[in-house]
């Protein structure tokens, strides 16, 4: 096992976030059945979240001991190394895809998502992107709807069609 001597951008913040999450999880596990017995529903969740608390605390401690990442404006570095632009844009597209699905249905929202992300990531002509989108959606539809008989989510807007 190798240890990393310099830490990544925002690593301390992330570890702190994990610790806060673990403490919340422990509090929620305690809320299930408290310390009322050793074989109640809440014991195992408490054990799991306690393990998370201890290990998150250890990780944070390791981070504090490590030398901080190279100097410079920390915000720029964080965006570059952890959240570069393509990742931010894809995450936004995925979020849009999620919110579009209930209204547009699976096929239309997937087609829109694929077309937008192909055009952004691949940067070929619009026609090529459109063609690949059509082929992908058609094959997904055939394999899942026809072969595996999965009922794909339908949209509320065009219920009868897609």
């Amino acid at each position: 096992m190798h240890s990393v001597t310099t830490q990544r951008r925002g690593e301390r913040g992330f570890s702190l976030l994990l610790l806060v999450f673990s403490v919340t999880a422990f509090w929620q596990s305690y809320a299930i059945s408290g310390f009322s017995g050793l074989s109640t529903a809440g014991v195992f969740p408490m054990l799991a979240s306690a393990t998370m608390m201890v290990s998150a605390a250890c990780i944070l401690l390791q981070n504090v001991r490590q030398s901080p990442s190279t100097s410079g404006s920390s915000n720029d570095g964080f965006m570059q190394s952890i959240l570069p632009l393509p990742v931010v844009i894809m995450m936004a597209l995925i979020t849009g895809y999620l919110f579009a699905m209930p209204a547009l249905g699976f096929l239309l929202s997937s087609a829109a998502f694929l077309f937008l992300s192909f055009s952004y990531l691949w940067r070929k002509s619009l026609l090529t992107s459109l063609l690949i989108t059509a082929v992908s959606v058609a094959s997904v539809y055939f394999i899942f709807r026809k072969v595996f008989q999965v009922v794909l989510p339908k949209g509320s807007l065009l219920q009868s069609l897609f």
Partner: peptide, 14 residues
Amino acid sequence: SFAKGAFAGALGVL
């Protein structure tokens, strides 16, 4: 590190 592995495992259990 072991701590990271243990955290991930416990998170899964949760």
